[in-house]
């Protein structure tokens, strides 16, 4: 058996309860390989997930299901230099990144 994280899915459950992500335009900061992204992005209107490190981002891009690619984008960026328009997102998630 490999490493297992959060086997009871608590994070997903509480993220959905607290975050109001369904149908929202979401910015995720510090997405890494997309561990958290996969837990919520299917229900959003669109998601932009950013991370400064290219290597984990490449892993996330490769793992992104084809049917999600029109509304889920992985972008190399850090929060201090966001290459995005202002007032674009309904939700911003700090994914274990603050």
């Amino acid at each position: 058996m490999a490493l297992e994280r959060d086997p009871h899915g608590n994070e997903t459950k509480f993220l959905h309860l607290s975050g109001g992500l369904s149908g929202a335009r979401v910015l995720e900061v510090g997405c890494g390989e997309g561990r958290l992204t996969w837990r919520y992005a299917y229900g959003t209107r669109s998601t932009v997930a950013i991370d400064p490190d290219l290597e984990p981002l490449s892993t996330a891009r490769d793992a992104c299901p084809a049917e999600w690619r029109t509304r889920l984008h992985f972008v190399q960026a850090d929060a201090e230099h966001l290459p995005l328009r202002r007032s674009l997102f309904d939700r911003a998630i700090l994914a274990w990144s603050l």
Binding site: L15, G20, L27, R85, L88, D90, L98
Partner: peptide, 23 residues
């Protein structure tokens, strides 16, 4: 950190919500 939060705030709509998840 504060500067990053300022930038993130600017990316949110006026009714936007920040969700801080961390151990």
């Amino acid at each position: 950190m504060v500067h990053a939060l300022e930038r993130i705030r600017g990316a949110l709509t006026p009714n936007g919500v920040l969700v801080d998840v961390r151990p």
